[in-house]
Design a protein around this nucleic acid. Sequence first.
DNA 1: ACCTTGACGGTTC
DNA 2: GGAACCGCCAAGG
Length: 117
Amino acid sequence: MQNIHYQQIWQTVQLIPQGQVACYGQIADLAGLPGRARLVGKALGKVPKKGWRGQSVPWFRVINSQGKISFPSGSEYFAKQKQHLQDEQVVVLGSKIKLKDFQWQPDLAEILFSLEF
DNA sequence: ACCTTGACGGTTC
DNA sequence: GGAACCGCCAAGG
């Protein structure tokens, strides 16, 4: 396929460690697409369910810059995302997550690694 | 080539 | 806090 941007995004999302979260804008920046948070949302909506390059894409570790799950509360996907996060010990109160405690803070080495492709 | 759609973000009030 | 508004721009129709 030719949608290079989606692939860069999926790949970056795969770097988020288990038990941590990242926001859409943060992923966009790390993927080399500054200012394109919305594209990240679109890309996540299209992750291959079977995974990509042999690994699953942990879409549920991506939330918005306000620390909230971006699906309408009550929707099927909202529940699914919340469940996945709680399963890996991320505390979700209502729809909110404390970024201060759970946001992924990639170190320099990780950033450089992600830029090599 | 034009128009709409996004799992968004920052600014402002 | 939260809501309204505007900027963003690749993809798909």
